[in-house]
Design a protein around this nucleic acid. Structure first.
Length: 260
DNA sequence: ATGTCGATACTTTATCGA
């Protein structure tokens, strides 16, 4: 089973690119972030024509996440627990049945948090605390579980082209990295790092300043696995090709293969 | 040093968020 995550930076601007990629890569499940549209505006029919079931948690103009799955959803639940006042559409959790049992998918778009420090950074850190609480709860289920998405976290210095330039950024500040580390220390596995030890492997390149051409990127899109999912992990790859296409997202897809 | 893109609105250019 192939599970991909991709921040597409706007479904309206990226629909042709996304359909092209889906036909070629054919993931069983795709976690999409930054759809930037309300539920009713999401073009579900175009994905259904490709054999996908669709779950959407949208928002006007910003944020928004969606799940595409070739398997039907047993459950699909929006919102991250822990703050009923939080109106930002950043989390969508689902369960699908597979031959070996079930797989739970959490699709997340973690807040950027810049500028740091400030209210946006406080929101990011609080959101990470809520995510950790949800992860701890899900780990008690002892089932294959994948938390996939745009974490807006650079885990380690070799996950960025120039770490010195990023020390005060919300994506790399010590408090951010510490919270990501504490998430891993619950017992989650960073799928990419379980499969690859090469430095400077990126999932995002800024639109500005020729970042793509100069390979000045960040590794900020991650798939974190429960122990039961890590047992099933066969491979994890970043698909850098779409960053070089016409009208690209600033992120590229990253995917895992699980033996379910 | 600078460089971009997508969406929105009291729109046709500025603002915000990334």
């Amino acid at each position: 089973m192939k599970i991909a995550t991709w921040n597409i930076n706007g479904i309206k601007a990226r629909i042709d690119t996304l359909l092209t990629w889906l036909k070629d890569a054919s993931p069983d499940i795709a976690c999409l972030q930054e759809i930037k549209c309300v539920d009713e505006a999401f073009p579900s029919e175009l994905f259904e024509e490709l054999g996908y079931n669709v779950a959407v948690h949208g928002q006007k103009g910003f944020n928004g996440v969606a799940l595409l799955s070739k398997l039907p959803f047993d459950e699909a639940t929006p919102r991250l627990a822990g703050d009923d006042e939080d109106e930002q559409a950043r989390y969508l959790e689902a369960v699908v049945s597979v031959p070996s049992g079930v797989v739970r998918i959490a699709n997340l778009y973690l807040p950027n948090g810049n500028p740091a420090d400030g209210p946006k950074y406080d929101y990011k850190l609080a959101w990470m605390d809520r995510l950790k609480a949800r992860a701890a709860e899900l780990l008690t289920y002892e089932e294959p579980m994948v938390m996939a998405g745009d974490y807006n976290v650079i885990p380690m210095p070799d996950d960025v082209y120039n770490p010195a330039a990023w020390v005060d950024d919300a994506l790399f500040k010590p408090e951010t990295r510490a919270r990501f580390r504490s998430l891993l220390n619950l017992g989650l596995t960073d799928a990419f790092r379980a499969c690859h030890d090469e430095a400077h492997q990126y999932t995002f390149w800024d639109y500005q300043a020729g970042a793509w051409q100069k390979n000045r990127g960040l590794r900020i899109d991650h798939l974190l696995l429960s122990p039961q999912a890590a047992d099933l992990l066969r491979s994890c790859e970043i698909d850098t090709a779409p960053r070089g296409w016409e009208k690209p997202s600033d992120h590229v897809p990253i995917w895992i293969e699980l033996s379910v």
